[in-house]
Design a protein around this nucleic acid. Structure first.
Lengths: 119, 119
DNA sequence: CCGTATCCATATCGATACTG
DNA sequence: CAGTATCGATATGGATACGG
């Protein structure tokens, strides 16, 4: 999602934040990495439905925005670990009220059975 | 922005909330209506750059989601007023931390001169 | 004034195949 | 394992013109 970033013409802070979290899978990536660091393959499995291309592109954007830290290990087989930066953790905290709102006002009638409530 | 609404396959509350506020101009509409109710033409002028088609479509979606209330007055010339519902106001409150985050961490160096800080 | 209709541009996402 | 390359589908948003 690119809205106004290119022209640097944000109207307010929400505008700007929406550019960072606006991708289809980004909040799910953030939520997963908030638990613990993940490898590329782990993320792909947990976000069932995402393709490698989109996952890689989202991760690169989040990395560019300073939300996600990428660490590659020179091993065989190769291993790459993604984790949240401090900025990423603060973003997640700022997203919590919105997640709560969505859970209470949008979902509320078709919860994923057995799963504990999530932001 | 339609992500997972059609399939009703949200993974968490943020997912669901993003569907509601995901349109390019939606958060700006919410911010404007939080101040006071607006007429269609007012909104079009204040959101400089939005076209009538997109503005009307966003307003209809927000109305369908129960965020915005639309009231038409049978006058000549015609007058239509948009305002936030209680649900819309609660959504705006849930967006505030995100707006604050964006203002502090994304903007912070290119503020619109003279304007007071906004969520 | 408050929209709708039409046509079009492009962003975003996805499927598949392939590489270091 | 962790990606990139290529091609294509679709959705969203925009320009313009016109109607109630």
């Amino acid at each position: 999602m690119v809205t106004r970033r290119a022209e640097n013409a944000y109207h307010c802070g929400i505008d700007a934040a929406m550019d960072v979290v606006g991708g289809k899978w980004k909040v799910l990536i953030l939520w997963a990495l908030d638990e613990r660091p993940r490898r590329f393959g782990e993320l792909r499995r947990e976000l069932s439905g995402v393709t490698e291309k989109v996952l890689a592109s989202h991760l690169r954007e989040l990395e560019g925005d300073g939300i996600v830290h990428r660490e590659a290990f020179a091993e065989v087989p190769p291993r790459v670990e993604y984790s949240l930066t401090d900025l990423g953790r603060s973003l997640n905290r700022a997203l919590e009220p919105l997640g709560l709102w969505g859970r209470e006002h949008v979902l509320a009638q078709a919860p994923v059975d057995g799963d504990p409530p999530r932001p």
